[in-house]
């Protein structure tokens, strides 16, 4: 039996971790990673919901989330690379200051 409730709690913990990481970390790489964590937490919640209701929809939805996450990583990393080339840093606050100047 799939422990749906525990999975949901894990998903919530993962999502919270992602959010907190997204808010407190200033490095772009970590930010991207926290976004990935949040996506996966959401995916876990979908799967758990699918198990609870006995319906495949949630799992199908996770199938869609996976390529989205992959694409996000690909583009996000490419952008991070370019930003690093230009700004010589990945510190988001420093990048914001550069924009202001």
């Amino acid at each position: 039996m799939f422990p749906a409730n525990e999975a949901l709690i894990l998903s919530a913990i993962l999502f919270s971790l992602g959010v907190i990481a997204f808010i407190v970390r200033r490095n772009l790489l970590y930010t991207l990673m926290s976004v990935e964590i949040m996506l996966n937490a959401a995916g876990l919640a979908f799967v758990a919901g699918s198990a609870i209701h006995g319906q495949p929809d949630g799992q199908v939805f996770f199938m869609f989330i996976l390529p989205v996450a992959a694409a996000e990583v690909a583009i996000g990393l490419a952008l991070a690379l370019l930003i690093f080339k230009r700004c010589k840093t990945l510190d988001l606050w420093a990048i914001a200051r550069i924009k202001e100047e």
Binding site: V19, F22, R26, T31, L92, A96, K99, E100
Partner: peptide, 13 residues
């Protein structure tokens, strides 16, 4: 609108 991504995220949260 200060370009601080984390603050946007906080507000969104």
């Amino acid at each position: 609108q200060n370009g601080r991504l984390s603050r946007y995220a906080l507000v969104m949260l």
